[in-house]
Write a protein that binds this DNA or RNA. Structure first.
Length: 588
RNA sequence: CGGGGUGUAGCGCAGCUUGGUAGCGCAACUGGUUUGGGACCAGUGGGUCGCGGGUUCAAAUCCUGCCACCCCGACCA
C-alpha cells in the first residue's frame, strides 16, 4: 500500500488527553480517535491490528471446537429480570428505552442471551457439551473511563460460553478455554500471568484472570516466587494470624489527648508509635436488596492495613455493591463515632467487626470516640468485643504466601481476559435444562470466558514501545515491512522501491511504501513511531541495487542488495509468524 | 459520586491578574531553495474564544448558571 494514499495522520506532539504511553502512542500514530469520553473509533492502522488480534482469537477458539455466532448488543430487560441481574447489575449497565417505554440495555456481557439461545436449542444430553462464542461490542457506563482503550465505555470483547452436563464436563471445558487463552496471549506476544480471581457480579465458583504485566496496569496481582501461587490482590487468601503478642502483658487502658490527629499517620506520629500498633476504623453503611439503607458497620483493622471489601461483604452475607463508605455525620448521630477519632470502645447501634489480626495484638491505640482523644493500651476482650471477628484484610507485600508461607510479591498488570466457572447460576433461574438418558431434567452447567480484544491491543503497545514509538510484535503488526524512499522524485529510487514492494507482496508480506514527498527525517520518525517491524530504506545506492535493512527492535542497520533485503525480510517475518503460530504454541 | 484542573484554529499552547474586539509554534495550502533522522525563505487560508444569562459605551478577560474533557479517589463482569 502506498503511504501517500493511506488515510493516516501522525501527531508530532503529545495529545493533552492522554497519559499512558499506549494511549499517547495510539493517538499519535492515528490508530484510534476519541469520539466522547470512553468511546473510540479505529482508524485504518488500528483496525488492522484489531483484526490481527481477532484472527488469533478466532483460530484458537475454533481449534477448541467452539463455534462462532454473533448476537445483538441490544438486549431486552426481560432476560435480565429472569436472571435477577436487571436490579443487581447497577449503574454500569447502559439502560435504554424504545418508543413504547419498553426497557433494554446495551449488553455489558451476554450470559443471559447465550443461556436463552441454549435453552431453546438444547433439549437432550446428546447435544452437550457445546461452546459458543462471539466477537462483539460491549457497553459499560464506567464511572470513570480512562487510559484510552484500557478502560472504555464501548469496547470489543470476545465472549464464549460453555454448556455441559455436569461439573466434570465444566472442568474440562474450563481447562480447554484456559489453555486456549494461554495460547492467544502468547501469540499476541504478551508477557502475562494467569492468576486466581474473584467471580464478582458474574458469579460462579472458580475464576482466573489473565493479566498482562505492565507498570501502568490497573490490576494489582500477588504472586509467590517459591511456589506457583498467583492471584489478584482481592482474591489472595491470607493465613489466619496466630496471636502474635500473646506473651505480652496487658497494660492499663488510658485515654490520652491527641489534638488534630485525624489520620493514622498523624496519631502514630504524635504518640511516637508504629502504625502497626494502631487500630484503624472503617465506617460503612449497608443496603438491602431494594437499595435502601439497612444499617451501619464499624470495621476495625490494623492501622497499616487496607480492607478487602469483598471479604467484608461476604462475611456480612451481602453483595459487594450493598456496602459503601458511610456518611460519617449521619452515622455519628446514631452510633457515637467521631470522624477521625472512631474506636471500638463505646460504639452503639452498629455492627462491630474486628479483623482477626487486631484481636491477637496487645496494647493498641484506637480512637476514643470524642474529638482529639485516643485510647492507648486497648485490648480485645478486656476493653471491647466485636460482633464478628473476620479475616478481611487485604494481603500486602511481604505477607506469608497462603500456599507455602514464604513472603509474597506484588506486581501490576492489565486484565486482558478472565475465565469463570458459572455452574447453574444462570441456567437454573432461566430454566436452561437438558434431559438425561432416563428423561430426567437437569440444569445445564455453564462456564463463561472473556477476552478484551481492544484492551489486548492497548496492552501490547504498553509492553512494546520505546521513546521513539511502538515496536509491534510481528504477529499483530499492522504491516510487516515499511519501505522508506529517500527521494521520491528520483525515478531510480522509486522504481526499486516499487519492485521491492511487489516482491514482498508476492510472498505474502504486508508492506507499506512511504512514497510521500517528505524529507528523510520525517519518514524515519514516522516509521519508528508506527513501529513497523522491518524497515527497508531505498536511497542513494538505489542505482547499484543497494538498500538498507533494519529491524525496528534493533539499532543496527545493514546494507544489502535489494534481493537480499527482501529475502531477509521474508525469512524474518515468516520465522516470527511461525513462532507465534497456532502450531508453535499448540502444546502450551 | 467526592476532590482538583482545563476548555481560545486540526494539534500543542499564550493572552484573562489590570476589559478596548485575538496571537505563537506545529500541521494545512501556494511558490522557491533543500533532501539519510521531525529543513529554510516568502506568501495564503482557517477562530460562534465550550454554551447561556448578567455587569459595561465596550467582555476571551469581570460575575453567574450549565455543559464537556482530563487527573486523584470511590467504583469497576
Amino acid at each position: 500500500m502506498k503511504m501517500s494514499k493511506m488515510y493516516i495522520r501522525t501527531l508530532r506532539e503529545t495529545p493533552a488527553e492522554a497519559v499512558l504511553p499506549s494511549h499517547i502512542l495510539m493517538i499519535r500514530t492515528g490508530m484510534i480517535r476519541k469520539l466522547v469520553s470512553g468511546v473510540y473509533g479505529y482508524m485504518p492502522l488500528g483496525k488492522r491490528v484489531l483484526d490481527k488480534v481477532e484472527k488469533i482469537v478466532k483460530e484458537e477458539m475454533d481449534a477448541t471446537g467452539a463455534q462462532e455466532i454473533l448476537m445483538s448488543a441490544l438486549q431486552p430487560a426481560e432476560l435480565w429480570q429472569e436472571s435477577g441481574r436487571w436490579g443487581a447489575y447497577g449503574p454500569e449497565m447502559w439502560r435504554v428505552k424504545d418508543r413504547n417505554e419498553r426497557e433494554f440495555c446495551l449488553g455489558p456481557t451476554h450470559e443471559e442471551i447465550f443461556t436463552d439461545i441454549i435453552r431453546t436449542g438444547v433439549s437432550s444430553y446428546r447435544q452437550l457439551p457445546v461452546t459458543l462464542y462471539q466477537i462483539q461490542t460491549k457497553y459499560r457506563d464506567e464511572a470513570r473511563p480512562r487510559f484510552g482503550l484500557m478502560r472504555s465505555r464501548e469496547f470489543i470483547m470476545k465472549d464464549a460460553y460453555s454448556f455441559d452436563r455436569d461439573e466434570e464436563g465444566l472442568d474440562e471445558s474450563y481447562k480447554t478455554m484456559y489453555d486456549a487463552y494461554t495460547r492467544v496471549f502468547t501469540r499476541c506476544g504478551l508477557k502475562f500471568r494467569p492468576v486466581e480471581a474473584d467471580t464478582g457480579a458474574i458469579g460462579g465458583n472458580g475464576s482466573h484472570e489473565f493479566t498482562a504485566l505492565a507498570e501502568n496496569g490497573e490490576s494489582s496481582i500477588v504472586y509467590c516466587e517459591h511456589c506457583d501461587m498467583a492471584a489478584t490482590d482481592e482474591r489472595a487468601e491470607l493465613r489466619d494470624d496466630p496471636p502474635s503478642s500473646e506473651s505480652e502483658a496487658m497494660l492499663p487502658l488510658e485515654e490520652v489527648e491527641t489534638p488534630g490527629t485525624k489520620t493514622i499517620e498523624a496519631v502514630a506520629d504524635y504518640l511516637k508509635l508504629d502504625k502497626k500498633q494502631t487500630i484503624k476504623a472503617l465506617l460503612y453503611e449497608t443496603y438491602d436488596d431494594e437499595g435502601t439503607l439497612s444499617g451501619y458497620v464499624a470495621a476495625f483493622i490494623r492501622g497499616d492495613r487496607e480492607a478487602n471489601v469483598i471479604k467484608l461483604a461476604n462475611a456480612l452475607g451481602i453483595q459487594e455493591h450493598q456496602i459503601a463508605f458511610a456518611d460519617e455525620e449521619k452515622m455519628s448521630v446514631l452510633t457515637g463515632c467521631v470522624g477521625g477519632f472512631t474506636g471500638p470502645i463505646g460504639l452503639k447501634n452498629c455492627r462491630i467487626i474486628a479483623d482477626s489480626e487486631i484481636v491477637g495484638l496487645k496494647n493498641l491505640c484506637a480512637g476514643a470516640n470524642h474529638s482529639d482523644h485516643h485510647y492507648i493500651n486497648v485490648n480485645y476482650g478486656r476493653d471491647y468485643t466485636a460482633d464478628m471477628v473476620v479475616n478481611f484484610k487485604m494481603i500486602q507485600e511481604g505477607d506469608p504466601c497462603p500456599v507455602c508461607g514464604q513472603p509474597v510479591k506484588f506486581t501490576r498488570g492489565i486484565e486482558v481476559g478472565q475465565v469463570f466457572k458459572l455452574g447453574t447460576k444462570y441456567s437454573h433461574p432461566m430454566h436452561a435444562v437438558y434431559k438425561d438418558e432416563n428423561m430426567k431434567e437437569h440444569d445445564i452447567v455453564m462456564g463463561c470466558y472473556g477476552i478484551g480484544v481492544s484492551r489486548t491491543m492497548a496492552a501490547v503497545v504498553e509492553q512494546y514501545h520505546d521513546d521513539d514509538g511502538i515496536i509491534w510484535p510481528v504477529s499483530v503488526a499492522p504491516y510487516h515491512v515499511i519501505i522508506t524512499v529517500m527521494k521520491t522524485k528520483d525515478e531510480t529510487q522509486m522504481q526499486l522501491a516499487e519492485k521491492i514492494e511487489r516482491e514482498c507482496a508476492a510472498q505474502g508480506i504486508e508492506v507499506m511504501l512511504d512514497d510521500r514527498d517528505e524529507r528523510p527525517g520525517v519518514k524515519f520518525k514516522d516509521a519508528d513511531l508506527l513501529g513497523i517491524p522491518v524497515r527497508i530504506t531505498v536511497g542513494r545506492k538505489a542505482g547499484d541495487g543497494i538498500v538498507e535493512y533494519k529491524l525496528r527492535k534493533d539499532a543496527d542497520k545493514t546494507e544489502l542488495s535489494a534481493e537480499d533485503a527482501v529475502k531477509n525480510a521474508s525469512e524474518y517475518i515468516k520465522g516470527e509468524l511461525a513462532r507465534y503460530s497456532h502450531e508453535a504454541v499448540a502444546d502450551l
